[in-house]
Design a binder for these strands. Structure first.
Lengths: 412, 412
DNA sequence: AGACATTAATTCGTGTCCGAAACAAATATT
DNA sequence: AATATTTGTTTCGGACACGAATTAATGTCT
């Protein structure tokens, strides 16, 4: 099989490591069956030999061979014969890779204005994408199911014939519990306490996991992004509100109740600015869109641009030297720095990743904002970096969620 | 062997469950060898039959018998024959318990004014205690080692002859990394970056683990306190500063770098009150002793009591109707509530335990302070409770640390 | 060219761990 | 006394993985 063979995962050309998924398994050695550890290691590494597998997993070579043979026989792995280029002495290793074409999983993301979807193979490579505009009045669960089914149908149509789709992940804003599959509440839905995973699984006819959007982003960073090599990190995102995802010991941490972490509603000021949640002093009330927009009228001398363009106009003014506009962003930036510092102080992560769509952090003058953080943390703060993705990150994270839930079933 | 036999752990008379240690093991099933899981389960339960062991650990009864037989043979467990009181049909179960008298571990605590130490048996029951006043000038590592050795000698003298001491735990304020055994920095020491665990192990002649004081308290709650049955909780303490300990999935979480969490230096106000750390707006700068004391002069009309009695005098005045004194405590309480709310928002724990010595939370009018928290969290806050211990909690936590580190060695 | 070193992968014997089920023991109920 | 019920033990077998010896495929050295 050649490297161009579509069955194996494509070679990345950028500096990122190949493969997908966390670089080290979450559990300590010997918790999971060797079969799963080997498969996940191959997927994570992208391409790896048996000998390297044995060394990395700290098992004897004699234990690797039969497991790999079985995985080859069931066509979950394949051998790449023409890798050549040894240069070293000794018998050249046989490179292994996952059979990416054995199955696909779908990642689905519901947001307030648009649905997006991605189909990825078992190596995590996208093979198809689709979007669907969201009708504003679509706030009921039956309607949601219709929309998701439509989105999924479009996705399958785009992909054409191919491997079977064996799992899906679905994400949306709100309080969603991945473990139970329940949606407790969502800002874009009227109902509460819905068994969303069950409903969607039945409607789509495939096993579906659900999670909230901040956790999707965290999964995207853990599986495909800058968090793959880190044991403990935090993901902060600014979209509708301020979201937070945590990774503890290479695994996503969802708290005791399974809902998300609420960085956006941590209090940064007693009796501070009013927040959408009805409380005062929330970080969101200083950093989120609505917080900036509500002050924009002053800076723009009452010339309110059409809805949806306020931030852009304000940003242009700030760059143009408008002191009031600049002051708005400055304060938001300082408060965001404070929020990040608090995350660093409370969690002591390896790194904080500001993730999401690009512009948000431009608005906040990321460089200047980040420069404030060291003055607000007791120890040296962890490296903080901005990771800008395209609009399909969320779907990518949902696909990672589906993939991580599918893997045990696939290997069983 | 009767229940009065000193070899088994004493029966608790209060409502707490018997035994010590987390009620569920941190790791998923089958990660640790069954031998260790059984021993820890017996210790955790206090008294338990083989059949119950099999059911609780989800292993077959046939797997339990040989392991227990071996543990009986090596005198790590014992059978209690006269428990009787079956009342039920069928063969009465044979109750097992750990042989508490097989060995002891020491818990040592260094603070700014006093050293305290506790000797506990393998069931976690204290068998001896000792204290040693600390000389103010004692800020060097050699002197610390001398003092700790003296403390340990006193402890052994108090205990008299008995089982061997097989391990010790040592805690002090500052940034201590349990995993590496290093003290990066401590407010009560002049040196930095000391391999403390190695030094103390050599000096005392027994295997010693180190950790910071907030984590000791967390261990105490996890092993002996209200956290035993919880999977995820936070421990907040107010002593010299404001400390935080976290338990994630039944195991203490120490962050990526092994130092403690810095709740006391999370920022609750931009450009707020000046903190000892040199930054502004830290929670500590509103809640810790020094924050209250520096405002006391105003409330006490310049009549400054002798050092060390300021808080008591201020508290008395506040209770007596002094509005200024009351305002000082009120503000501190509100900020503490804010800090607790932030912990709840960021961590989503099962519970938050305010732990430490009793008076601190009286100062802060715990009831009224706690009533503020729900107004500051997005979701319903977790139950928050005050757990008041005596002055030996820290040593107790250090002993728990030693015990948890000793167990694998003991069973090997 | 051929012996040798080196690295990769397989085979095979062994041991550990644990589950399933049959069996033995000790009690209460009928 | 017979039976039901629950606890604990024994035995067999299977799954899993280690480790040593073996086979395989290359580069290096003389």
């Amino acid at each position: 099989m050649s490297l161009d063979d579509p069955r194996i995962n494509a070679i990345r050309t950028d500096g990122d490591p190949p493969g997908c998924g966390p670089l080290r398994s979450a559990r300590p050695s010997s918790s999971l069956p060797l079969r799963q550890r080997i498969y996940e290691k191959v997927r994570s590494a992208g391409r790896i030999s048996r000998a390297a597998l044995a060394k990395d997993l700290e098992v004897s070579p004699g234990s690797v061979t039969p497991v790999v043979s079985d995985l080859l026989a069931t066509e979950l792995l394949c051998e790449l014969e023409d890798v050549g280029q040894t240069g070293a002495r000794g018998r050249p290793p046989v490179t292994l890779a996952v059979r990416a074409d054995r199955a696909l999983v779908a990642g689905l993301k519901v947001s307030d204005h648009e649905y997006s979807a991605l189909l990825v193979d078992l190596a995590g490579q996208p093979v198809a994408r689709a979007t669907l505009p969201r009708a504003a009045e679509s706030r009921s669960v039956p309607r949601l199911l219709d929309d998701v089914a439509e989105l999924y149908a479009r996705l399958l149509a785009t992909a054409g014939d191919g491997p079977p789709v064996l799992g899906a992940g679905l994400g949306m804003p709100g309080m969603l519990d991945h473990a139970s599959g329940r949606m407790r509440w969502s800002p874009i839905m009227a109902e509460r306490d819905v068994d969303l995973a069950v409903c969607v699984s039945e409607r789509l006819g495939i096993e579906t996991s659900v999670d909230n959007d901040a956790n999707l982003l965290t999964m995207a960073e853990l599986w495909f992004g800058k968090g793959r090599a880190l044991s403990d990190f935090a993901v902060v995102t600014i979209e509708y509100g301020v979201g937070l995802g945590l990774v503890v010991d290479h695994a996503p941490y969802r708290g005791a109740h399974g809902h998300g972490m609420e960085l956006g509603h941590t209090k940064v000021q007693l009796d501070g600015a009013l927040c959408r949640c009805g409380q005062r002093g929330c970080l969101e009330a200083y950093v989120a869109d609505f917080a900036l927009v509500r002050e924009a009228a002053v800076a723009l001398n009452g010339e309110i641009p059409p809805r949806g363009e306020v931030l852009e106009a304000l940003f242009a003014q700030a760059k143009d030297g408008n002191a009031a506009a600049r002051a708005i962003f400055d304060r938001a930036g300082r408060y965001l720095a404070l929020g990040l510092a608090n995350v660093a102080n409370l969690f002591d992560p390896n790194r904080i990743i500001l993730s999401g769509s690009r512009m948000r952090y431009d608005f906040l003058y990321a460089e200047e904002m980040l420069a404030e953080v060291p003055g607000l943390t007791l120890n040296d703060p962890p490296p903080i970096e901005v990771n800008a993705w395209d609009d399909f990150v969320w779907a990518r994270g949902a696909a990672a969620l589906a993939l991580s839930d599918l893997t045990p079933r696939l290997l069983a």
